[in-house]
Nucleic acid binder design. Sequence first.
DNA 1: TGAGTGCGCATTGTCAACAATATCTTGTTT
DNA 2: AAACAAGATATTGTTGACAATGCGCACTCA
Lengths: 241, 241
Amino acid sequence: MNKSSSSVAEIQNQTDDKTLSGQTTLALREAIIKGDIAPGEKLNEPKLAEQFQVSRGPLREAIRRLVAMRLVKHVPHVGATVVTLELKSILELYDVREALEGKAAALAAENMSPQDIAKLRSLLELHRQHSEDNPGQYMQTDGDFDFHYQIIKGSGNQLLTDQLCDELYHLIRMFRFQTSRFKSRSNRALIEHEQLIYAIEQRDPQLAEMLMRKHIARAKTAIKQALGNIESSDIEPSSVK
Amino acid sequence: MNKSSSSVAEIQNQTDDKTLSGQTTLALREAIIKGDIAPGEKLNEPKLAEQFQVSRGPLREAIRRLVAMRLVKHVPHVGATVVTLELKSILELYDVREALEGKAAALAAENMSPQDIAKLRSLLELHRQHSEDNPGQYMQTDGDFDFHYQIIKGSGNQLLTDQLCDELYHLIRMFRFQTSRFKSRSNRALIEHEQLIYAIEQRDPQLAEMLMRKHIARAKTAIKQALGNIESSDIEPSSVK
DNA sequence: TGAGTGCGCATTGTCAACAATATCTTGTTT
DNA sequence: AAACAAGATATTGTTGACAATGCGCACTCA
């Protein structure tokens, strides 16, 4: 397959695109995800082009790619704005994740090579150990995503992988940045991951799918409960500069 | 909701984009789906710009949008080519459909309004009648898609709807055009649709999801059997001019 | 004759100026 | 004073020219 990537930082795709529009896409994407450009904010082409030291051409292209990633909304003759992740959108995102990643887990149980399964288990052990050493850890969520990422890739379905890792993944990252205060420090995820990898090792697609779906559905419920009351009062654009 | 659309021809989104790049996107998309530009063929920017009577700017933008729709592959400094739908990609597509449309059916069973369910049933009756009148019909597949389309929209999940109807839908259309000779004339789909709508009327999400998944999985199996032997011998670019 | 190298051409990437559209401001009218 | 209309301004859409990269061809040399 590819090189044995496992770190989140390594996930960055499109790294081999030395073209200006490619570079601008990466820069603009990170600026949006990290909140340097606030949700709902308008993307002024001349201003941003100046800021990124490129012409409007490549910048426009970058914007269109971010539209495809659903990080940006665009209206003809009006302009592009950063998406605002209100609760409804996030819950929708988790329903889609449940469907896609559930199927990914099932396919992984069928297709994943023994070597990749072994790597997945060692990754889990790594996270478990880190979790024991640092009780109030915040690497939890990143570790969670490493795990999911490996399973998705293990599905062997390129379309599925593209949809999850190239598009929806960045939406999730953006949401995580905006709500990084509420990092769930429960080690429940660790237990559920343990069950999941067991199902994959047993080559049980149905069980793997069900476990993954419950895992994500639980996360969705937790989000709903945490954000359901406050909604837009505490989810403000956040001056995270 | 929206206007009560039901015809396939009416599905065309992006119709309100009077901009040149928008129009060019539609034209180029149809040219690719219908095979006027063959699978694997290179998209020559100056040539196509001349052909569509636009500058290279809007044309490039159209290409990028088709890349997002997965109808076109692009390599920096080399160019864009129409995707080639080999069997593997198509099976992958159907796995993704199974996951997403399964979830859509479950959500539709929960959220669809009684009025929309009634419209869905009348649509089914329309197709059944058409099927009885014309035993060797070829409206079957289009009717099939109308049905699926309405259920997806009935899910009430905007992200899910966008992913299926704005992106994957066109891939499916392209595949259908290329294999239009093998139109399955079985009325099995009609029976399965009947079961599905019953589950939705009963507000049974789990049953609806399972029926939808089996429905799509069966279609996948049929495709595998029909194309598994011949593969690239009969799926040639096809000079459908 | 075959392999390798360098040149030339075709194509993609980028830029800055121009055109078209929307938004904002200002003034007028009721 | 509020609402509407018309003009001014800012922003997006489009264009053609220029730069950079890749590819193919021919030519050379072993």
